[in-house]
């Protein structure tokens, strides 16, 4: 869940869907406290240059909330980082499935998984159990072979 950060000069909200309710409570609070904010619903990928300009013209003390599907959140985050935002200047929330990388313990091949508990490695065909053993170096989880 998002948390409302006090004491920011300006809040920036963006989402990929007008039916996304994750931001409502934050907007409500900003209105109550009379904090300046901007709100954009970005449904098209082509709006990227607009987003880029939007982020670039912000001043110190701006705080960003991103809500949407995983790809959207990743894309907007990247644009924000390029414009000078850091992890401390933003929060994000993913709606829907989160894809993650899974490394096959047998062949080290990378698989993409969402919420499955077992997958077949696309590289070597080994059946893998998805674990929560995570490597930051590889940004991936480990898939184990089980002996039944």
């Amino acid at each position: 869940m998002f948390s409302y950060v006090e004491g920011k000069r300006k809040l920036l909200f963006c989402t990929d869907s007008e039916v996304d309710r994750n931001l409502y409570i934050l907007v409500r609070q900003a209105l109550d406290e009379n904090v300046t904010f901007e709100f954009h619903i970005l449904e098209e990928e082509s709006e990227e240059s607009f987003v880029n300009q939007w982020f670039h013209k912000q001043k110190m003390g701006a705080y960003l909330y991103i809500s949407g599907k995983e790809d959207f959140v990743k894309r907007i985050k990247d644009v924000a980082m390029m414009a000078g935002f850091t992890e401390h200047d933003m929060q994000s929330l993913i709606n829907g499935p989160v894809k993650k990388k899974l490394i096959c313990c047998t062949c080290h091949g990378v698989n993409e998984v969402s919420d499955q508990t077992h997958v077949v490695c696309v590289h070597c065909g080994q059946e893998l159990e998805v674990s929560d053993h995570y490597s930051r170096r590889l940004d991936a989880y480990l898939g184990y072979v089980t002996i039944k």
């Binding site: 313990c105 490597s135 930051r136």
Partner: peptide, 9 residues
């Protein structure tokens, strides 16, 4: 265990 996977941890 796997050195390749655990490296850097």
């Amino acid at each position: 265990w796997s050195l390749y996977f655990d490296a850097g941890m």
